[in-house]
Design a protein around this nucleic acid. Structure first.
Lengths: 175, 175
DNA sequence: GAAGATTGACTGTTCAATCTTT
DNA sequence: AAAGATTGAACAGTCAATCTTC
C-alpha cells in the first residue's frame, strides 16, 4: 500500500498533529451546525412563519427558470431525498405557496411551481435569513475568514465521492 | 485589526460582496454537513456497530475525570437537549456501554458512567472515525485550510450568544 | 423492467407536562 | 418554587414497498 502515501513516511508526531487539526476543524463544524441551525430555523419561523426546510425549497424555485422544477431536480439542488421533497412540497402546496402541475411531455414526472404568494413570502423571508446569517455566523468573522471557510469547504464538496473499499455491506446511503 | 467595525460606513457594493461571502461560507458548511454526517454515521455503524450519536456520548464520557458525568453536563458538552441525552443514555445503558448511578450529594441529578465494555467499544471505534474524517473531510484540505476552518469556526462558537432584540415571542430555543 | 414519484410503517427528535429532590 | 431529569404525545425524517408511465 505504498501508492496513497507520501514519498517519504510522515513522522508519528506530524501524523498526530495533522489528525488533531482535522478533528478540531470537524468538531467545530459540527458544533456550529448544531448551535446555529435550530437558532436560524426558530428565527425564520418567528419572523416569517416559514421553517427552514420550506425556505430552502422556495429559494430554489424562486431562482429556477419558470419558477418551477421537476421534483427530482428540486431534490438534487436542495440535497434532499425523493421522499422528503415529496413530503415538503405537499406541505407547501397545502399552504398555497407551491402548486403541483403535471408534465405534459412525461407523465411520470411532475413540476413544483412557485405561486405568487409563495414568491411574496420568500421575498419577505430572504432578508431576515440573510440578516440572521450575518448576526449569528458571519458577524464574528473577517472577510478573510469567510473566504477561507468557503474555499476550504468547497474543496471538500467538489471532491469525487469517496467509496469505501471492503467486502461487507453496501454503502448506497445516498441512493 | 483595531476594531471589528469599519470606521466609515461601508458602501452598498461592499455590503453586497460581504453578504455574498457570508452566504457562500454558510451554504458550504450546510452542504458539507448534509453530505458527510450521514456518510460517517453509516461508516461507524457498519464497522463498529455504534451510531454517531452513541459515539459522541462515549467520547465525552471517556474523556471525563472519573469516566462519568452528570446528565446535564453531558448534554452541554455534546450539545444535546436534556430530553435527548436522557433517551440516548437509556439506549447505551440497555446496550451495557453506560451505567446510570445516582448522585449521593444531590438526589435530583444522576451520573452516566462509562462501563468497561463501553470504553473498549469506544477505543475500537475511535480510529475508524478518525480515518473517516481524514478520508472524507480532511483529505481534500491542506494543514493551512484546516487551521483556518478550525480557527474561524471557533470564533463563531466563542461568541456570546446573540439574543435577538424585539418585542415578539420568546427565543429560548435552547432552554 | 427502469424512471419518477408517492405512500405506509418505522425510527428518531422535540415539546409540553410531570415527577422528585432541593 | 426552582433545578435536574424523565415520560407521553406529536412531529419530522428514513426505508422499503408501491403505483404509474415510459
Amino acid at each position: 500500500m505504498s501508492s496513497t502515501e507520501p514519498p517519504v513516511a510522515r513522522t508519528d508526531a506530524a501524523d498526530a498533529e495533522r489528525r488533531g487539526l482535522a478533528v478540531a476543524a470537524w468538531a467545530a463544524l459540527l458544533q456550529v451546525h448544531a448551535a446555529l441551525v435550530p437558532s436560524l430555523d426558530q428565527l425564520l419561523i418567528r419572523r416569517t412563519g416559514l421553517p427552514l426546510r420550506w425556505y430552502d425549497v422556495l429559494l430554489e424555485l424562486a431562482a429556477a427558470p419558470e419558477r418551477r422544477l421537476l421534483m427530482g431536480e428540486l431534490g438534487q439542488r436542495v440535497v434532499l431525498s425523493r421522499t422528503r421533497v415529496s413530503r415538503i412540497v405537499d406541505e407547501l402546496a397545502d399552504a398555497g405557496l407551491v402548486r403541483k402541475e403535471s408534465n405534459p411531455w412525461d407523465g411520470r414526472s411532475s413540476y413544483a411551481t412557485l405561486t405568487n404568494e409563495g414568491l411574496v413570502r420568500y421575498r419577505a423571508a430572504a432578508p431576515v435569513y440573510l440578516a440572521g446569517i450575518e448576526r449569528e455566523f458571519a458577524g464574528s468573522l473577517t472577510d478573510a475568514d469567510l473566504s477561507a471557510v468557503a474555499s476550504a469547504l468547497s474543496k471538500v464538496l467538489n471532491r469525487p465521492l469517496q467509496i469505501e473499499g471492503g467486502p461487507e455491506g453496501s454503502n448506497d446511503h445516498n441512493a
